[in-house]
């Protein structure tokens, strides 16, 4: 029997890896992968808590919606990245800096 702590350990690890990825990467697609990791950590947390709370509905449904939303967000974000590539010729976020002040 796997305890809830094992699940929590994995999700915290996933969350921190995602956040680390977001902070250190300068490639836009790399950053988006980090965001996906954070969302997956949240989904896993939801399902684990739903299982151990004995209330399968709430958390499970939330996890399902999180998967859908992650896809929607990735679609919008990648469209924006394509438009950035057209304008700047690169998807490095540190080079796409016209706005300052």
């Amino acid at each position: 029997m796997i305890s809830i702590n094992s699940y929590l350990f994995v999700t915290v690890l996933l969350f921190c890896l995602g956040l680390y990825n977001v902070i250190t990467r300068s490639n836009a697609v790399g950053i988006l992968m980090g965001v996906e990791l954070i969302l997956n950590a949240a989904s896993l947390n939801m399902v684990a808590f739903a299982h151990f709370n004995g209330n399968l509905v709430g958390g499970g449904i939330f996890a399902l919606f999180l998967i859908v939303l992650a896809a929607a967000e990735a679609a919008v974000a990648l469209a924006i990245v394509v438009s950035i590539y057209r304008q700047f010729g690169t998807i490095d976020v540190e080079e796409a800096t016209n706005l300052k002040g």
């Binding site: 977001v22 988006l32 919008v76 974000a77 990245v81 438009s83 700047f88 976020v93 016209n98």
Partner: peptide
């Protein structure tokens, strides 16, 4: 484009 990239991230 740049504004929306920053916004989405």
């Amino acid at each position: 484009s740049e504004a929306s990239l920053k916004y989405v991230i």
